[in-house]
């Protein structure tokens, strides 16, 4: 590169930067974006695929839940719980509740579950600690839970829910959440933030080294 070219380039740089500043448009957000541009789902997108996805999610949820019931190893239980949580998050996506779905993933799967596994690691002496349960207890619990499940299912399937369904349901947007949390739900929102503070202090107090 010749010296003159270098000089010209050096002179051009501040000029170009200044020019780009001069022409930088004011940040104007498009307020009238369509729903798909905003990334909001509607129930019209569904169809056969939605049904298939639902059955897949429900299958994973229930299979992992059943595996938790049967498993004796606590870490495996936590991993099955991860499967349940992820499948439930997918179900929230199917229910057009995107925000709840991602919050489920980030808080439950990314936070609570790790806390649980951490708790397991800190509180078990041998890696495969097992806690035996009497067979009679298992049978009794199974009968009680089966009766309870039958009762609840009977109610759920036979009840007439007063639903006001529209043809096309538009998914929730973040704006709704923001305004909801700061208007209608301000008191529970504040209460829960105070509760979180209390829990933080309490957990730190209880888990501290003497």
């Amino acid at each position: 590169m010749t010296l003159r070219l270098k000089k010209i380039l050096l002179l051009m740089t501040p000029l170009a930067i200044a020019l780009s500043f001069a022409t930088a448009p004011v940040q104007a957000a498009d307020t009238d974006l369509s729903l798909s541009d905003q990334g909001i789902q509607t129930s019209a997108d569904g169809g056969l695929l939605e049904a298939l996805m639902f059955y897949a999610c429900a299958g994973v949820t229930l299979a992992c839940g059943f595996a938790i019931c049967l498993s004796k190893n606590i870490v495996r239980m936590a991993v099955y719980l991860f499967g349940t949580l992820a499948a439930v998050a997918l179900m929230y996506f199917l229910l057009l509740a995107n925000f709840i779905g991602v919050i489920q993933l980030i808080v439950y799967a990314g936070g609570t579950l790790i806390l649980l596994i951490f708790g397991v690691m800190l509180t078990s002496k041998s890696p495969w600690a097992k806690f035996e349960v009497k067979r009679s207890e298992l049978i009794a619990a199974g009968i009680v839970c089966a009766l309870f499940a039958g009762m609840l299912l009977f109610v759920v399937v036979n009840a007439e829910w007063p639903l006001e369904t529209d043809a096309v349901v538009v998914g929730s947007s973040m704006t709704q959440f923001g305004t909801g949390l700061l208007t209608d739900y301000l008191v529970p929102f504040e209460a829960i933030s105070v509760l979180l503070l209390v829990v933080m202090i309490g957990a730190a107090y209880m888990a501290r080294q003497e």
Binding site: I68, C69, G142, V144, C145
Partner: peptide
């Protein structure tokens, strides 16, 4: 419902 009942079963039967 099924998930709920399974949760109750786990709460009853687990010792840990």
């Amino acid at each position: 419902t099924l998930l709920f009942v399974m949760g109750i079963f786990v709460m009853i039967t687990k010792r840990n």
